[in-house]
Design a protein around this nucleic acid. Structure first.
Length: 522
RNA sequence: GCUCCAGUGGAGUAGUGGCCAAACUCACGACCCUCUCACGGUCGAGCCCCCGGUUCAAAUCCGGGCUGGAGCACCA
């Protein structure tokens, strides 16, 4: 029975329970506050990523929230790549698709995908119009010199240039007749505005480095974010802008342009930065990129990297991330997101489907040890899932077994090998005691996982803290690549590959392994 | 220095003048269940930044502090 069939059944036998269930779910969806001035079917929002690298976990918040609001209001979700800096934050040509993949992984699909670098002529046209309205002037002051004047509340000497000259000089900018730093176009705001951040800001500057996209490589005169984004938000009908507090002055800057054009500014919401616990690596595209370039990380999906590609490979569902991100709400203060919250959401999603297997870890501080079993059955037969007996059992050869040394009982002590029975540790062997479960229920016999010494699969388990080696029971081979399973008493993992190719970095498989699994969480 | 924003248990959020000696999720501790340290269940510890003011009544409104964050780029 799938979800909808179950619901139909429930509607038949207990309509009030179904109603209750739906009311609860409705409430769960309401973790985000309502959008101001939002009308059903009229809401348009955009995510405006800079494609200067694949996404880290923090980036998931924007599509998670926009996607959730889109569903609530039957709105529109635009993905606009703000790729207007060919130099300092140079776009990575692979990142455009990597970002769209990440959005899909989170379970959303943008209604429209735009690239700012396709839209330069539009920005130029609006700049010309702004110049004609007396709202902008070309300025050849150095950034440093202008900053001095600005901080003193003094205007640039270029501020009152006649519009003809401004127009000519701007056309020269567009034609690429200036080099970087020689000329900018400034928006005329208020040079004595109390907030220095708003005074006559730069709308266009010259960049010598060609854009990496062939379609845009001939442009040299590039708009700044506040101009480009402001124009695009209006032109694409954005009704609600959501952005970080680092851009809290953007709306105020852009309003000057909107006022010149007599446009109405969208609703704006700001939020703080997201910090993550659990990772050693900073949530920063450039930091992660540098670590990959230095070979400290294997790539964007290295389990140690706080990226979306990484958690996807670990078997964490996009839905779990979306839930945690929307639970953060819309507060403007910085927030710390606990990975455990994502893990808890994910566990809810996967626990029922994840079959159980054993992995005996072989770690330097807790090495795997081998013991012969004297007596007892040939095999152990634990269930694939404790809540689903119909799935059947696994078969684990006994006789000679391996377990983690911290699970090894003291000499004379007993231990219950899960799915097999109770053994006593005598000298360097296990003596079969029996399979009367009351020894576990009433006695103090600990229950442990184990693997066969000979038939076990040599396994590499890749975790956030680094690689762990061990031996998995042979029936793990019945699982498929991409399956999420639980290694009992260890945690949930995603089956990544069987008989892997060796990796060319320090971490990762050597090629000797039978199995590579990526660790998700306990 | 100037300008903005925010401060509720360990993390996140709810509460926007009385129903709040404060709720929910995660984490934590104990116990129950269990052939897993998963799942499920019960219980527990732990919070309104400070000082004033308004009010019969303040987590909630006002003022002042303090603390934290952001911007003042020819980055996004």
């Amino acid at each position: 029975m799938d979800e909808s069939e179950r619901r139909e059944r429930l509607a038949d036998i207990a309509p009030d329970l179904l109603e209750e269930l739906e009311a609860e779910e409705e409430a769960d969806d309401r973790v985000l506050p309502d959008l101001p001035n939002a009308e059903e079917g009229e809401v348009v929002m955009r995510a405006a990523p800079n494609p200067n690298g694949p996404w880290h976990l923090g980036h998931a918040r924007m599509p998670a929230v926009i996607g959730t609001y889109k569903e609530r209001y039957d709105g529109e979700f635009i993905c606009r790549f703000d790729d207007t800096d060919p130099e300092t934050k140079r776009p990575d040509l692979d990142a455009y698709d990597a970002i769209l993949d990440a959005i899909a992984f989170l379970g959303f699909e943008p209604d429209r995908v735009l690239r700012a670098s396709d839209r330069l002529e539009t920005y130029y046209d609006h700049a010309r119009e702004l110049i004609d309205l007396g709202g902008a002037y070309t300025c050849d002051l150095s950034g440093e010199r202008f900053s001095e004047l600005k901080n003193a509340g003094e205007p640039s000497p270029n501020r009152d240039k006649d519009p003809e000259t401004v127009r000519e000089e701007f056309e020269a900018m567009v034609a690429g007749e200036y080099g970087a730093g020689e000329m900018v176009l400034r928006v005329k705001t208020d040079i004595e505005h109390p907030n220095p951040a708003l005074r006559d800001w730069v709308a266009f500057r010259m960049v010598d480095t060609p854009h990496p996209r062939p379609e845009a490589e001939s442009y040299r005169c590039w708009p700044m974010l506040d101009f480009q984004s402001g124009i695009d938000d209006h032109l694409t009908g954005v009704t609600h802008i959501i952005r970080g507090i680092d851009l809290q002055d953007s709306a105020k800057r852009q309003r000057f342009v909107y006022d010149y054009f007599d446009w109405e500014y969208p609703e704006v919401l700001h939020w703080g930065h997201v910090q993550l616990d659990e990772y050693d690596v900073k949530l920063s595209t450039s930091t992660i990129k540098a670590l990959i370039d230095d070979g400290e990380l294997d790539g964007w999906d290295d389990p140690r990297a706080p990226t979306l590609a990484s958690v996807e490979r670990r078997g964490i569902r996009g839905e779990a991330i979306v839930e945690s991100m929307t639970e953060l709400g819309m507060s403007t203060s910085d927030v710390d997101l606990a990975m455990s919250s994502i893990y808890a959401n994910n566990r809810d999603l996967i626990d029922d489907d994840a079959n159980r297997y054993f992995l005996v870890r072989d770690r330097p501080d807790d090495p795997a040890v081998v013991r012969d079993i004297v007596g007892g059955p040939e095999t152990g037969q634990p269930p694939l899932h404790p809540d689903h007996e119909e799935r059947g059992t696994r078969t684990i050869p006994a006789g000679r077994v391996r377990l983690e040394s911290s699970d090894l009982p003291a000499s004379g002590g007993q231990v219950w090998l899960k799915g097999f029975g109770c053994v006593r540790h005598i000298r360097d062997a296990f003596e079969y005691v029996g399979d009367d479960i009351s020894m576990v229920r009433e006695g103090d016999v600990p229950v442990v996982h184990w693997a066969p010494a000979e038939e076990g699969l040599e396994t590499l388990m890749r975790t956030v803290e680094g690689d762990v080696r061990g031996y998995a029971e042979p029936d793990v081979a019945d699982a498929d690549v991409d399956d999420v399973v639980q290694f009992e008493r260890v945690g949930f993992v995603r089956i990544d590959s069987f008989d892997p190719e060796p990796s060319d970095t320090d971490a990762g498989p050597t090629g000797e392994e039978d199995l590579v699994a990526y660790y998700a969480h306990p």
